[in-house]
Computed example of a mutant assay.
Amino acid sequence: MTRTYLPGILAMAAVVVASNILVQFLFGNWLTWGAFTYPVAFLVTDVTNRVYGVGPARKVVLAGFVVGVICSLIGTQIMGEFGPLVTLRIALASGLAFLLAQLSDVAIFARLRGGKWWRAPLASTLIGSSLDTAIFFTVAFSGALSFIEPANDVSWAGEMLPLLGVGPISPLWVSLAVADWLVKLSLALLALVPFRLIVARLTSARPANA
Rank of each mutant, 00 (worst) to 15 (best):
V40R: 01
T133P: 03
F82S: 05
R58V: 02
A120E: 09
G95K: 05
F147K: 02
L85P: 00
T37V: 15
A144S: 12
L112D: 06
I74T: 12
L103I: 00
I148M: 07
L96Q: 00
V44C: 07
L96K: 00
G55A: 12
C71P: 06
I90G: 02
F137K: 02
P39M: 12
I135N: 01
T76F: 10
L131R: 03
L88R: 03
A120C: 13
V106N: 04
D105F: 05
L85D: 03
A107Y: 05
G114C: 06
R50E: 15
G143P: 08
G143M: 15
L100W: 12
F141V: 07
K116I: 08
V106Y: 02
L85Y: 14
A101K: 01
V86E: 02
T133Y: 13
S94L: 04
G55S: 09
L96M: 10
A91F: 13
F65W: 12
R58D: 12
A110M: 07
F147H: 09
A91K: 07
F65C: 02
V66R: 04
Q102S: 04
I90E: 01
I148H: 04
Y52H: 15
V139K: 05
L99K: 00
F136S: 03
R119P: 01
V139R: 04
F42E: 05
N49K: 05
P39H: 10
G80C: 07
D105H: 00
G53H: 13
Y52T: 10
E81F: 11
L126Y: 11
A57Y: 13
A57N: 06
L99Q: 03
V69S: 10
F141G: 01
Q77A: 14
F36I: 03
A123H: 02
R113G: 06
R50A: 15
I74L: 09
T48M: 15
F98D: 01
R111D: 00
